[in-house]
Design a protein around this nucleic acid. Sequence first.
DNA 1: CTATATATGTACCAGTTCGCATAATAATAG
DNA 2: CTATTATTATGCGAACTGGTACATATATAG
Lengths: 198, 198
Amino acid sequence: MTNSRGRPRTFNEEKVLKAAEQVFWKKGFSDTSLDDLVGAMGINRPSIYRAFGSKEDIYRRLLQNFADKMEAVFIETMGSDGNIRDRLIAFYQNALTVYSGGGIAKGCMVMSTAVTVAPCNSAIQEDLMAIIQFVDEKLAEQFQIAIDSGHISATPNGKSRGMLAQSLLHSLSLRARAGQSPSQLQPLIETGVALLTS
Amino acid sequence: MTNSRGRPRTFNEEKVLKAAEQVFWKKGFSDTSLDDLVGAMGINRPSIYRAFGSKEDIYRRLLQNFADKMEAVFIETMGSDGNIRDRLIAFYQNALTVYSGGGIAKGCMVMSTAVTVAPCNSAIQEDLMAIIQFVDEKLAEQFQIAIDSGHISATPNGKSRGMLAQSLLHSLSLRARAGQSPSQLQPLIETGVALLTS
DNA sequence: CTATATATGTACCAGTTCGCATAATAATAG
DNA sequence: CTATTATTATGCGAACTGGTACATATATAG
């Protein structure tokens, strides 16, 4: 029994999901209508449902998808072997490029859009919480390594530094979406990293 | 010509605005319907329109209203004459009480709800930007005083410290709305303030 | 070929959205 | 009292909401 029976799809799954992401990213969950998705994805309503489920299903999938992409950025920048200061700066700068990309003020897709719905949608709230905790852990790991190898002081500890490092990320996202330019935010990255690695 | 001609209002303006705030705070701008407001405020649609204008008018008014209330918290805590460390901790703790109040994960009303709409509504985006910049300035002021009086080092400068201090606020709001408890966030406040005042 | 499985397109559902037109109500001014 | 002014209540309507039924199209399996 092959999986390719029936009429073949006319759309590329990756492409239409990317299109849907753009809409959710800009308009948020509540303000995105199925008609918006139909327009952006270029496929009809019943096809969307058949392929991806409900609006909420698509959105939650894209949340995880975005988090995965940011994790890739994290691994790419923080995984190298320079000192933690330079690696952190590279990470924040790449994140900021994502947040401010395309000339539109966007911020982080997760932090900017899931927040609002969270109190009314426990599934999305849990997704958001899980992503925040994951980022905390990943950052804490890196600080712990730097502490263990004597590059930075043992206080604040790795976990605290991780949470504070994510705070900077939260603020970059929020400020970018409010319309602050990358050049305005660059000093925030630099002084933030300086404090975080002191 | 007196102002009290005609049929008198049956509602208390402050009270119904407070009720509206609760709805917007929980559901965000887009997901709050006029029927929601009618239900919460206890007055009919045409009365709402006559008294406060459109849904967007009410929301923007409440944004500023909330910012004013937080400024009052700021003045109350940061205006005293203890050392900057203790005053900052008091400020963050009071803010966190607001963010986590009433058993529901709420976060900051401005940061949690205006973010999402910002890219689609330039007026709200500008409101958000103005509030962020105002908070930056108020915080920077306090750090500058502490620097000038020799209580903390001159680098990072007051402006940078102000922006970083607001980052912590952003993260507290986001984390509270994601469901993290005040006790989980207390260490973030403490280590954050320690770094900010080092 | 026929049977089956998947995808698509039209058209529609019931419920909700915002905003308003209209009329009734309740106060004051003279 | 009547005229004026302001607020409140009923309820409309046209557009939009997320979601689906049904018929049609296009592939593979045998």
